[in-house]
Amino acid sequence: MSEKRSFRPRTRLASRFLPFAGLAALLLLWDLAIRLSLAPLLPGPLAVFRAIGELAQKGFLVKHVVASLFRVTWGYLLAVAIGVPLGILLAWYRRGGLAFAPIVEMVRPISALAWIPLAILWFGVGDLSSVFIIFIASVLPLAVSAMSAVGNVSSIHWNAGRNFGLAPRQIARRVLLPAILPRLLVGLRLALGIAWLVVVAAEMIAVNSGLGFLIIDARNAGNRYDLVVAGMVLIGTIGVVLDAVMRRIERLPGLRWGYASAAAEEAA
């Protein structure tokens, strides 16, 4: 989209430099705030950097990252396996959707954390509960995403499928599934973001590895705020990477057709 703006980066090089400028500004502000003792206990960027180095040295970096990724992968994949078909079914069978959509909308606002007591009751303390928390946080957003994707399939495509004499099952396979793919991928990306976000909550359940655990433990076991913030930085970075990977998948050649329409869908 062309814009006639009065501000224009002088050169293309300057424009590419901007994202880094933003990050640099953040780091500088942070450092300044710490130096001015605006928040006495909190670490500055250098301290955090050193803390990450410390983790890497002791071999904890890889251990925690892998542990968190492991839990998120399981919880997320389970949520996809259950949530996406559920959403498609609710949209395909109008009455089913009418019946169960309000219930989905009622369960969705319940924070994953609120499920912790029940998770512990059902699965005890440990990894299974963690995975369940991640699952429960992602499954309904995925279902809603799938529902919305089905609802957005153009009626023209439905009609064309029927026109060519396809049976409902064939229409589902040859029209529905390809047509919802772009929007569904956006939904999958957003839900992955949620799953990753919730990993911190999930790891509050007495597990002893993972980035979420690191954050909580570092504070409890000795006010190591540098490790706390290090954990936050790591979570943020991995979150960005996961998001970027999903975006790449959205742009695969076979799927690029939907990119333009699906891009309008997302919040960012």
Partner: peptide, 8 residues
Amino acid sequence: ERGVFPWL
């Protein structure tokens, strides 16, 4: 023209 399937 919207009738053509964009994924094929």
